[in-house]
Design a protein around this nucleic acid. Sequence first.
DNA 1: GTGAAAGCGCTAACAT
DNA 2: ATGTTAGCGCTTTCAC
Lengths: 336, 336
Amino acid sequence: MGVTLKDVAEKAGVSIGTASMALNNSDKVNIETYKKVISVARKLHYVPNARARALVKQSTNIIGLVVPQIINPFFAELAQAVKDSARKKGYNLILCSTDGKADEEARYIEFFKSGMVDGAIFASQESLTNQNKIILEELIANYIPVVNINSQEFGSDLVPVIKIDLEKTSYLATRYLIELGHQRIGFGSHSLKRFEGYKRALSEFDLYNPEFVYFPMQDFDEDIYAIVASLMEVKVRPTAFVCYNDNSAIKMIQLLVEKGIRIPEDISICGTDNILLSRYYNPSLTTINIPKEAMGQKAIEILVRIIAGERVAKSELDITYPIELLKRKSTTTYQG
Amino acid sequence: MGVTLKDVAEKAGVSIGTASMALNNSDKVNIETYKKVISVARKLHYVPNARARALVKQSTNIIGLVVPQIINPFFAELAQAVKDSARKKGYNLILCSTDGKADEEARYIEFFKSGMVDGAIFASQESLTNQNKIILEELIANYIPVVNINSQEFGSDLVPVIKIDLEKTSYLATRYLIELGHQRIGFGSHSLKRFEGYKRALSEFDLYNPEFVYFPMQDFDEDIYAIVASLMEVKVRPTAFVCYNDNSAIKMIQLLVEKGIRIPEDISICGTDNILLSRYYNPSLTTINIPKEAMGQKAIEILVRIIAGERVAKSELDITYPIELLKRKSTTTYQG
DNA sequence: GTGAAAGCGCTAACAT
DNA sequence: ATGTTAGCGCTTTCAC
């Protein structure tokens, strides 16, 4: 359709090979012919055909990012960080949101296998189905480099992992609530690791009570409706609650407020993720900061190096980023 | 690197051409050879090379979506809708967030020109720079089909536009606040159209007062800080405020609450967009619903048809979707 | 129905 | 320093 290299070469009176070299800034080309080719290319509005280039270079300069859902602000913010870093390295990002569907995930992996991306980052925390685990392993083994964020489905000798200590997120949150004087602390999550952190904190003070545990809990509205409904019925209500992410914490707060529960006076609520809006929620959300920018950047940095054929150091195969409790207004002290 | 068609053909004892036909479900191939090829392909874990296919087919099966910022939930939700529809049509989505940077936008357009996408959707409401306007025009004229969402930079004979009536968003919001009894209604936006709607509603009741207008206003924290600071200093404060999107409404509410202002008792606040979280904000946000799903879906539908070579009907060149006021808890009546 | 061959547009190795 | 040529892996005529 467009202007091809052949057109440029002809108009410039050089061979197609020379034109190619000139346009790729090769130093093996005469300065005069270089100028000539460049000027003709510009005049003709020549744009190199990326499809053809991809075929011969075995590379598309595209990186795939797989997240469970882009409408979760945490992943949108992570995607933003990944995208920024990717662009700085000259890559484009293809954003893949699986929406928790295994077959979507499978389709993306197939797409990656087809050679349309030079590498991929998986930020899907969900456990993969066994089927997808197999095809992902095959992808990694035979096709393109992969870096994981927060997922540890694979041995770190195969795939670098950029992560946080999930257990610690709920440990920190729970611990803080205990320090605030709470004794009946609820918990909701779908993640075993997070649950363990919650339980550990409570166990240290002999405060663990399975009655207050909602597990597994998804990010879906329905689950939170059910929890809030249950919270309204129960005779002894927790005075504090740890949510596995900010999205669910926010929904929970709103549903509780609608029931006439005051936050934090009646129930303190703690989220996780520190999404942009958590600071602007009302009350502003006590949460755990996850360094998404740094993690996204690191993931790209390592991935690009692997794509370039570098071997990553053992120390970079498994990097844990520090997390931090942000004390805000959705939590307050409890005095029996 | 991987298994190629040649490998499959050899193992199956047929020619490359026949293998290709078989794999593409051509009916011109003997059922026996078809079975043979398929089975060999499966055994060898053959995945067609998308780069090679893209070159010969002049198509990548990828659609580009350009948004101003993916961390704005409105665009994340729109992207989700676009992605879902694209996948249903067999396309992958490459998500491009310009972050308001003209050079990023230019880079994306160049990328599109290079042939890596079969079509593109621009949802960047911001005005383009003149430079980018030129290169976008060139993209549209010479390269790939484009559909706009909410942007009308181009004549509708060139590019179909899926939009809402921007003027009406703020008209509806302002009108509602007037109905609630408010007389001093503030406004913040960067969009002239939205401002016009606000002004029209107030003018109908002879209530317009430039004192309450903050224009232009961006989505940035700093702007909202400044507005809130100004609101605190002013002698006569508005009793209601129209924000140009939910993101800024939410930030504004939180900053006002921190200053001791009660929402909606002291100031009613109205957003625009109906992002997912607006219903879960506290107070839940009165806002204007924009049918993102329908718009995203329509954009893809039309784009795919243009890619397929269809000519779109005049009536589809400019489609306006209906918007709707959602009355929630961030607004209340005002009695002198 | 199948094989052979042309070619998509480009890069890179090889001649000259 | 430049031209020629051989592919990259695939689809698609065109003979047979």
